[in-house]
Nucleic acid binder design. Structure first.
Lengths: 221, 221
DNA sequence: AATGCAGAAATTATCTATAATTTCAAACCA
DNA sequence: TGGTTTGAAATTATAGATAATTTCTGCATT
C-alpha cells in the first residue's frame, strides 16, 4: 500500500488522510505536529508538508501560527460536495463515454456486484469508488479526475461519519441503470442518472462522542 | 498586498504563483529550493511548503527527490480547464442568482466597463476576474469558489502566455448579456451564456524563447 | 563520433536546534 | 464574583546542519 518510493511526508499525509476519512480522528480536533512526528518517528518538518497536502484536499484547515485542525463539516458542505461531484462527474462521463470498452463496463459491473454484497461501509465505499473511477478514467482529463478524487474522499468522510458501524446490504439500481445506458450508447441518459445518483443524500441520527444525538448526512453513491 | 499576518511560506507561494501565471517563469523550468530560499532570504523549509501549495493549485509539479518544476500546458489542458470552469461556474451561478442584488450587478457592470477599456492583458484579466467573482461569490459555497479560483489562475496563465504583449481593446458582449439576463431574473439564460462564454478558446501564433513559432491557445472569458 | 561509466558537484529530503507565538491557568484587582 | 493580567508550558515557524539521492561532466572504450 504505502510505496517506499514515496517521501516520508507523502506517507504521513496518506495515513492521516485515511484516519480523517474513516473518522478515527474526529472533525475539529487538532493535529499537533510534534505528536504526529513522534508517532511516525520523524522530525516535524515532513509532518508540516503532510499537513499542507491535507489542506489542499480539504481534509484539514490550517490557521497561521495556530495550528492545523481536522476540517469540520455540516449539511451545507455535504450538499456542496454532492453538487460539485454531480457537475464534474457528468462532465467526465461525457468525455469518457466514447472511449468506454465492453471490457471496462464488465469490470464496472463486477464492482457493482461487489458493492451489493458488501456487509460493511468500508468495502461498500471501496467498490463504489472503483465503479466511478472505472467509468470516468477514460475521459483522459487528469486535472478533472484528481479534483473528483478529492471530492470522493470528502464523500467517503461523510459516509463513514453516518454509517460507521451499522450498514446493511443494499443493491444499487443506479449503477445498473448507468451501465445499461452506456452499453446502449445512450450517454445522455447515463449522465443524467449519474448526476442524480451522486446527489442522493442519506440522513441518519448518530450519537456523538459526547453522548448527544445529532443528525448526520451523507452522500450515498 | 502581501499581508504580514501571512506565514513566510504563504508569501513565497503567492509571489511564485504570480510569476508563474504572468509567465515570468517559463513552463517546465525547475524551481530550486535553495535558490528560491536565498532570493527570499529564508531557509528552504518554508520554500518547500510554498511548493506544496503551488502543487495543489496545479501551477507546479513535484517528483519525489527530483524536484519541482513549473507545470507545462498544452491545448488539451486549456480545454480541460475551460470545461471545468464552465461546469462549476454554471453551478455556482445557479446558487448565487437568488442572492444577487442590484448593487452587486452594478458593480459587475463597472468591472465589465473597466475590462472593455483595458489596454493590456493584465488589467483586462483583473477586470474579468472581478466580474466573475462578483456574480458567483453569493452562492456561498466556499469549496466550490476556491476550486473556481484555482481554475481562474490556470486560465490567466494561458491568457498571458498567448497575449503577453499585444492586446487590443475589445468589448465583451457576453458579460453584458449575462448581466441583462440576471437583471430580468432569467437565471437559466444567464447560466447558458456563462457556460458558453468561458469555453471560448482563442488561438494565436507565438514565438517561443528558442525562436520557433507555435500556436498558443487561451481561454478568453 | 557515439556510448557508457566513474567521480564530483549540485540538489533534495530530513534532522536537530532555536526563536517566536499562542494557550492555559493561576494570581490579582475591581 | 467576575474579569483581566501575567508568566510558564506547549506549540508553531524558521534556521542551520547533515545525510541521501540525483544530475552533471569529463574521460575511457568501442
Amino acid at each position: 500500500m504505502t510505496n517506499t518510493e514515496d517521501t516520508i511526508a507523502v506517507r504521513i499525509s496518506k495515513e492521516l488522510a485515511d484516519r480523517i476519512i474513516s473518522g478515527v480522528i474526529e472533525p475539529g480536533s487538532r493535529l499537533r505536529q510534534d505528536h504526529v512526528a513522534e508517532e511516525f518517528g520523524t522530525s516535524h518538518v515532513p509532518v508540516r508538508e503532510a499537513f499542507r497536502r491535507l489542506e489542499a484536499q480539504g481534509l484539514a484547515i490550517s490557521e497561521p501560527r495556530r495550528g492545523v485542525r481536522v476540517a469540520a463539516f455540516d449539511l451545507g458542505e455535504v450538499r456542496e460536495v454532492a453538487e460539485m461531484r454531480a457537475a464534474l462527474e457528468v462532465l467526465a462521463l461525457r468525455h469518457a463515454a466514447p472511449h468506454l470498452t465492453p471490457a471496462i463496463l464488465d469490470r464496472a459491473e463486477e464492482a457493482t456486484k461487489a458493492g451489493d454484497k458488501s456487509r460493511d461501509v468500508r468495502s461498500w465505499e471501496e467498490a463504489n469508488r472503483t465503479f466511478h473511477r472505472l467509468i470516468l478514467a477514460p475521459c483522459n482529463m487528469p486535472r478533472l479526475l484528481s479534483t473528483i478524487d478529492d471530492l470522493h474522499a470528502a464523500s467517503a468522510r461523510f459516509l463513514f461519519a453516518a454509517w460507521r458501524s451499522e450498514w446493511e446490504t443494499r443493491t444499487d439500481q443506479d449503477h445498473r441503470a448507468i451501465l445499461s445506458a452506456l452499453r446502449q450508447g445512450n450517454t445522455e441518459s447515463a449522465a443524467a442518472t449519474l448526476g442524480r445518483h451522486v446527489q442522493w443524500i442519506g440522513q441518519k441520527p448518530v450519537k456523538t462522542a459526547s453522548g448527544r444525538t445529532r443528525d448526520a448526512f451523507a452522500i450515498v453513491g
